[in-house]
Each structure stands twice: as structure tokens, then as C-alpha cells.
Amino acid sequence: MNRKILNIVVNGESHQVLIEPHWTLLQVLRNEIGMMGTKENCLEAECGVCTVLLDGKAVNSCILLAGQVEGCSITTIEGIGDPEHLHPLQQTFIECGAVQCGYCIPGMILTAKSFLDENPGSRPSRDEIREAIAGTLCRCTGYSKIIDAVATAAERMAISGGSQ
């Protein structure tokens, strides 16, 4: 097997991982680095549960080959907050009742974070939020409370001075 070393930074920590060329970033994160908060479903960039931030931008980790992210910096849900220090989005997702089964939520939060970080300090409209998160499917919530959560987090982040 033609294995190769992948150099990758995940949540600020650098990793060297022995990969097979066909592995996706999703496989590397889940199987090699143990970032299980990055979820797996359709594997065709249709559902968004595998969303991570690649150099700060939301991407579907299921369709990126590991080799394509050599030297890149990845942020997963584990990298934006922890139970003692929740990111504002994590906080508002809980407060607004935006979480049901929760399987889409890591991807949804990262999709939203990428969007909010693009325009620090902005207060996007509900329609703008809808458009920004449309690439991540949620089957439980009907999205309303997710939009509440993103709008509330944006408001708080705007007050506290932009990106977190």
C-alpha cells in the first residue's frame, strides 16, 4: 500500500498521520485523530454533518482527500469550545433549543461559524442565515431554532467584538 505521511494541524495541534491516498479528511479526523465530533453520513457533500473548517472556511470533509489538505489547518467542533468554555454558538444552540438528536449539530455550528466569521460584528438577517446553512441538513428541528441560535450568537458576538 502506497502510504504517505500527512502533515496537518487539527485544532491547533500538529499531527503527522500515515495515510492511504484514497482516505478522506473525514476518515483521517475520525479514524486516525479521534475527532469523533465530525460526523459521517452521505459521503457526497449533500448533508453537511461532516463539516469542518479548513483554514477557517466551512468545507465538507467527506469529499476532500487527505492529500489535498497537506499542511492545512483544520478546526473541528472540539476545537471551538469545550463544556467549560462554550463558544457563543454552542451556548445559544443549547439555550434556543436548537439541538434535538444533535447529529447534524457539530457540522451546523461550524457552518454557522464560518459564515459569522466572514463578516465579524455583523447581524445577519434570518434569510441570510438560512442561505448560509442550507448546505447542512437537519431532519429534527425544521431549522427555526437553529436560526434563532445563530442570530442570537451573532448578536452576542457583535456586542463582544467580533469573531471568537
Binding site: 457533500a45 479548513l54 466551512a58 465538507n60
Partner: peptide, 12 residues
């Protein structure tokens, strides 16, 4: 450009 896949695909 804005209707091709989701934002995640538009970034890839």
C-alpha cells in the same frame, strides 16, 4: 456561484 451546492462546496 451562490446556488452551487452549499457554502461548504462553494468553499471547495
Amino acid at each position: 456561484a451562490s446556488v452551487i451546492g452549499g457554502r461548504q462546496v462553494q468553499n471547495i
